[in-house]
Design a protein around this nucleic acid. Structure first.
Lengths: 334, 334
DNA sequence: AAGCTCAGTGTAAGCGCTTACATAAAGTAT
DNA sequence: ATACTTTATGTAAGCGCTTACACTGAGCTT
């Protein structure tokens, strides 16, 4: 057993050429004459040779690998965008390495270092909020990074995303326009999460603009899960006066709220209106269907991939791009 | 700009020791005396040194990396198990590399080669069905592999999973016991997917055992998505005589069927009963709630991680393990 | 025909680490 | 005090690739 794995040298010997030629056959076939290439390829097949990636990275100082760190893979929020991201990378010969940080900054930091140590040529990050020195670190390691799912033209690295503040402001305006005055919010945890914070601010802005005092806004910050949404909604409903509209930080929270409403015998949208964010598949499945914000996940993933590859290849200094969101009016808001 | 990234040599020089000592400080701190270690660590911090992973893998011939290839990340089916898998790996210093094959064998093959080339110490695969030579390839490369989400004590590699056939048989029995005789199935695509095939077989077995002719079973094979489930259900309902129970290959298909039923004005479970598989969160959210099969995702991920690490470290030849599933009776079956 | 260019190939120097082995110093047993 | 361990560190040989540079010979130009 333990038959040794074939190396470039073995291939070279079998084909009767130098290692350089084998390497060129594999990486720049055009630079090798056809007869030679045939010999080499025959040897590659015969030996079942696969290049050793670590050796290649080390010698070439280039890994054709892009790393992405998302807060979670546990729900579908990032899955769609990431899928598009990965497809775009794959089409140009890059590999995607994904890891999840469980919304924990220290884990994210570790993952960033891990990915850099693994030779990632570039990094996709979600949102801006992290220690500033991490950006310095990336700069020092010459690893370009791009932020997605958030937008800030003046951030430390470029971003491709949408305006969380404006989107949530628009949703809230829609609620106020329908006569709602007592508004509550179930928000994601804002600390360390600029997206959550901006969404919360968006609600406040809309209220202020429409002459509804934002001071009266009841806010519960909680984890982005269905269960948390359920619990938060129950707590909100226990307060008096009761809110007539509950703005949720994302669809999961809204779905949880909906479940809770059912348990409590509260009719949505009859007694209370509800809105979400993300327009996950789930939003169309629940009863009543969810008014929410549709985000161009696939477009974002695609654009992020293109931009990041350009940055890695030095053909772009890194350009930010703002994508449009859209309010999807469904049954849960009345 | 382009300040060079510090290397082990730089650290060694700054600390006034040899590279071997620095390496030992990082990997086997116990073998270095404290005063030396302090000097080294100070240099590491001062330089912001991070070991180069490719170099380490190459020199040590060990990457502490485990690869996993799942059919999809697009829904939550594998997310939970994978999360547990990753946590268990992380706890023992391993890193997980995930990629998704989009249910395509040729992509999976490529991913397997990619992960091996990247020096994965071991591989987690889903289900057994793939070219036999892939198993040979892994054996030749000395990369242990483990199959999850399926069980076969005599497979080419060990497995940790559950009995798809028995579980689906039990669900079907439950339907027949409630008086259903005209049964239909919305199955996943069986070609290249042993889990889907086994689930389909489970339905047939139960029918045969209960004296219901399996020949009458209407089967539609389709992709594991909500939309596909919707379309399939509509097609099934157009047939006469209509089935009174529709067994679905997983929860997504069942949810799709439910949506379709609503559109068509068919009452579930009044007119037609419905069952799913996986017990995703979704199963408790839809109306009516879904009768389905609960799978111990977390336990499976954890067990798979433990076993695979043992295989990688040579402390286990690879032991298969069968986990129990459980039928969860909810409103959709009557 | 001399001098070019240039395509195709080979030579060999690393890339940044780990680790077997060598060495030195200190501790222990006799 | 001698010989033998043990412990801490250093030396240097790779690991399997890529690529700058050198080389060769064929085809051009003049």
């Amino acid at each position: 057993m333990n038959e040794p794995v074939p190396t470039l040298d073995d291939v070279a010997k079998m084909a009767g050429v130098s290692t350089a030629t084998v390497s060129r056959c594999l990486n720049e076939p055009g630079k090798v004459i056809e007869t030679t290439r045939d010999k080499v390829m025959k040897a590659v097949d015969a030996l079942g040779y696969t290049p050793n990636f670590a050796a290649r990275v080390m010698a070439a100082k280039r890994s054709y690998t892009i790393g992405a760190i998302v807060p979670t893979l546990d729900n579908a929020i990032f899955a769609k965008g990431l899928q598009a991201f990965q497809e775009a990378l794959h089409a140009r010969g890059y590999t995607l390495l994904v890891s999840s940080s469980a919304y924990k900054p220290e884990i994210e930091k570790e993952q960033i270092r891990t990915l850099v140590a693994r030779g990632a040529d570039g990094l996709l990050l979600i949102g801006y909020e992290r220690e500033g020195q991490l950006y310095d670190y990336l700069a020092r390691q010459n690893v370009p990074a791009l932020v997605a799912w958030a937008f800030d033209a003046d951030g430390p690295v470029p971003s491709i995303g949408f305006d969380n503040h404006a989107a949530m402001r628009a949703v809230t305006q829609a609620a106020i326009d329908r006569g709602h005055r007592r508004i509550a919010m179930i928000s994601g945890v804002c600390e360390g999460n600029d997206r959550a914070q901006k969404r919360l601010d968006g609600v406040k802005t809309a209220m202020a603009e429409k002459g509804v005092s934002p001071d009266a806004l009841a806010v519960i910050e909680t984890a982005y899960t269905i269960e948390a949404g359920e619990a938060a909604f129950a707590r909100l409903m226990a307060r008096t006066p009761r809110a007539t509209a509950v703005i949720c930080g994302n669809d999961l929270l809204a779905v949880g709220a909906l479940q809770s409403a059912k348990t409590l015998g509260i009719d949505v949208p009859g007694d209370v209106s509800l809105t979400g964010f993300d327009d996950m598949e789930l939003a169309r499945i629940v009863q009543p269907t969810l008014t929410t914000v549709s985000v161009p996940h696939r477009e974002m993933g695609q654009a992020a991939a293109d931009e990041l590859m350009a940055m890695v290849e030095g053909t772009s200094p890194g350009r930010s791009r703002l994508l449009e969101t859209e309010i999807v009016l469904r049954a849960s808001l009345r």
